[in-house]
Design a binder for these strands. Structure first.
Lengths: 181, 181
DNA sequence: GGGTGCATGTAATGGGTTACATGATTCT
DNA sequence: AGAATCATGTAACCCATTACATGCACCC
C-alpha cells in the first residue's frame, strides 16, 4: 500500500509501471502483485492520497496514470514516523534443514546449492546497482537511502552465500560418512 | 503445518508445548500462532498423520498429546523432498529507509538502532545455543542440522548488525550536514 | 504463427493474526 | 491481591497470491 504511494511520490505512474519499478528497485526486500496493486490504487484514490488521470489507448486498456496528492504526502510522512513492525520469519529452506535428519543429504544439497546460486545472482545485480545505477542519480536526495537498501541486500546475500558454502561442506561430509556405513 | 508434524516426529507433545518449542528452537526462522496450531493439529489428525491422546486434568482443559503416525512420517519425507518455495521478501524497515528522503534521519535512526539491538540479542541467544545447548544433544542425529539453522541465524544477524552500524554512521552524517544548512 | 510485452482488472481461495472465551494453579 | 502460566479452542478479519478474462502490437 505505502510502497505504491511512496513510489508515486517520486514519479507519477500506472499500476503496470509500479509493478515493474517495484520488481527492479525494491524487489529484494519488498514485492507486490497485480492483485494487490490495482485494488490498492483504487483505495488510495478514494482516500484522496492519489489522483488518477486516464489516457486513451486504442486496442489496449486505457492507461491510468496516478500521481500523489498533498494529502498523500502527508499520509506518507505519518506512515514513515511509525516504527516498522517486527518481521514474521518464515524460511522454508531452514525448516527443511531443521528436519534434515528425516531425509538424506542428497535431497538437501540441491536446495542449498539453489540458495547459493540465488545469492550470487542477487549479489551481481546489487553490485551493478551500486557501481553503475546509483552514481547516475547522485544528485537525487533519495540516492543515499537507496544505497542503504542495496547495501543491506549485499551484506545479507554475502552472509547467505557463506552460510550455503559452509552448509554444503557439512552436508557432503555427512553424506560421505553415511556411505561408508 | 509441517513444522508441527516435524516436531511431533521428534517427540509427542500438546499444542501448547508445540508453541513453546517453536518459539525457542525455530523462532528465528519459523513461527506459528495458536490460531494456526490448534486447527492444524485437528487437520493433521483427520488426515491420519498424527494421533491425539487425551489426558484428564482438573481445572484446566484436558491435555491433548499428539504423536506422529507412520503415515505422518511418510508425509514428512514426501514434504522434505519437495524443493522449498522461494521467499516473499517483505521488510518494512527497508521500505521506510528506501523512502527515507521524505522524512528525517532523526526519525530513522531509532529504527536502525532497534534493528541493531535485536540482532545483538539474537546473536547472544544463538551463541549460547551453539556453545551450550547443542553440545548436550551431540548424539542426536538432528544435532548437525539444528546447528546449520543456528549458524544461518548467526551469520545473518552479524550481517544485519554490520549493516545497521554502517547505516547509522551514514544517517548521522546526513543529519549533521543537514543541520549546518 | 506463436511468444512476449503492454495494460487493466476481478474472483476464488488460502493463509495467517488477533482477539475473545474460560478457568484453575502457582508465583511474587 | 494480582500477574503469569498452563491449556484449549473459535470467529472475525485482513492480507495476499493465483488464476482468469481481454486483446492489441511487435518481434522472430
Amino acid at each position: 500500500m505505502e510502497a505504491l504511494l511512496g513510489l508515486l511520490s517520486i514519479e507519477p505512474m500506472s499500476g503496470y509501471d509500479l509493478r515493474q519499478t517495484i520488481e527492479s528497485s525494491t524487489g529484494h526486500f519488498w514485492r507486490e502483485s497485480y492483485g494487490q496493486i490495482y485494488p490498492n490504487l483504487k483505495a488510495l484514490a478514494s482516500a484522496g492520497f492519489v489522483q488518477g488521470k486516464t489516457e486513451r489507448h486504442k486496442g489496449r486498456p486505457d492507461l491510468q496514470i496516478y500521481s500523489i496528492t498533498p494529502k498523500g504526502r502527508e499520509h506518507m510522512r505519518a506512515w514513515l514516523a511509525l516504527g516498522p513492525q517486527p518481521e514474521v520469519p518464515r524460511n522454508e529452506l531452514l525448516l527443511k534443514i531443521f528436519f534434515g535428519a528425516q531425509t538424506s543429504p542428497e535431497i538437501l544439497i540441491p536446495y542449498v546449492e539453489r540458495e547459493a546460486e540465488g545469492s550470487r545472482n542477487l549479489l551481481r545485480i546489487l553490485d551493478q546497482v551500486i557501481q553503475k545505477e546509483l552514481p547516475k542519480n547522485q544528485h537525487y536526495p533519495d540516492a543515499p537511502y537507496w544505497k542503504m537498501t542495496a547495501r543491506f541486500g549485499q551484506m545479507e546475500m554475502e552472509a547467505h552465500l557463506r552460510w550455503a558454502e559452509e552448509t554444503l561442506a557439512e552436508l557432503r561430509r555427512i553424506e560421505k560418512s553415511k556411505r561408508k556405513q
